[in-house]
Amino acid sequence: MATSDVQPPSTMDDPVYRTGVLELLGLLAYGEISACERLAEDAKMAPDLKHKVEIAAMATAEFHHFEKLRDRLVELGEDPFAVMQPFAPTFERFHGQTTPSDWLEGLVKAYVGDGLAADFYREIAAYLDPDTRTLVLDTLSGTGHSEFVVDAIRQAIDEDHRVGGRLALWGRRLMGEALSQAQMVVAERDALSTVLVGGVDHPGMDLAAIGRMFTRLTEAHAARMDKLGLAP
């Protein structure tokens, strides 16, 4: 059978595929609730009410995304919190190693970090069954709330050019930590990695394709940093 004739599974009948999808949904759900919590903390550092409300809007969007993922896990007959719990150390590691020291670093993390995560999940979505793909892509929608970050960062750089250098270094650190955690998660989760690289019954990425994926993630990060006025 030609590769073009092989289709991703349309049901969750394949136990390995089902486990991989559950892991992906659990990872996404924990990421969304973790982001909501992080943004709520960042809002405390906001310099004024306007920015506090902007961050609150981003946190609210993350929570609504979490609800969709939670509800899907329930539909699949799973305890969503049991599925999410194994990923707690992943996000604790990432947030522990990328705690912003001030408001501007928090903004860059919200904009760049969430963008990196969204890019990664969109790449994986291409190898999912239609229902799961639609859910994942829907979960990644509604990120327009973060556009105010661009104006805030550029204004800060205009006021003090030294800020640009510091935040550019911060952005590179975020990129390194995010890619490290993504690679670690895929390596630690056999079923999730099977969904990504493929298996007997469905196509996935070969090693060269995985390499190209990480190249695309790096390029998208560079474009995002440039938009903020933080040349790599």
Rank of each mutant, 00 (worst) to 15 (best):
V136T: 01
L192P: 03
G171T: 02
D158A: 14
E32G: 07
L69K: 04
E23C: 03
L104K: 05
W103N: 07
A2K: 13
G20W: 02
H202D: 10
D102W: 04
L192E: 07
Y127M: 00
G211W: 08
V200R: 13
T215L: 13
A223F: 07
E92L: 08
E37P: 00
D102R: 07
R122Y: 00
T99Q: 15
A187E: 07
V163F: 02
Q181I: 05
E78Q: 15
F91T: 05
R172N: 10
G165R: 04
H65P: 03
V150T: 15
I33P: 03
L28Y: 02
V112G: 01
A125I: 04
A43N: 10
F214S: 01
T60C: 09
L73H: 12
K44P: 01
V112R: 03
M213R: 01
A125P: 02
L27R: 03
T194R: 09
L22T: 05
M205N: 07
V186N: 01
G144L: 07
F120W: 11
F91R: 02
A2L: 15
R133W: 02
H161R: 12
T139P: 00
E177I: 00
S193V: 08
V163E: 01
L135R: 01
M205V: 10
E177W: 04
R93P: 01
A231G: 12
V150I: 15
R72P: 03
L28S: 11
L174C: 03
I33V: 15
L174D: 02
T139S: 08
E23D: 12
P47L: 06
S34N: 14
A125F: 04
V185W: 02
E177S: 01
P89Y: 06
D201F: 14
V185G: 06
H161C: 05
E188T: 06
A61C: 11
P47Y: 05
E147C: 03
D102V: 06
L69M: 11
V53C: 04
S146W: 08
T19V: 08
E123K: 00
Q85L: 11
C36D: 14
A126W: 01
D102L: 05
I55G: 04
T215I: 14
L230M: 11
M213D: 00
I55S: 06
A152H: 08
A156C: 09
D71E: 15
R133M: 05
V83H: 03
A182D: 04
L73Q: 12
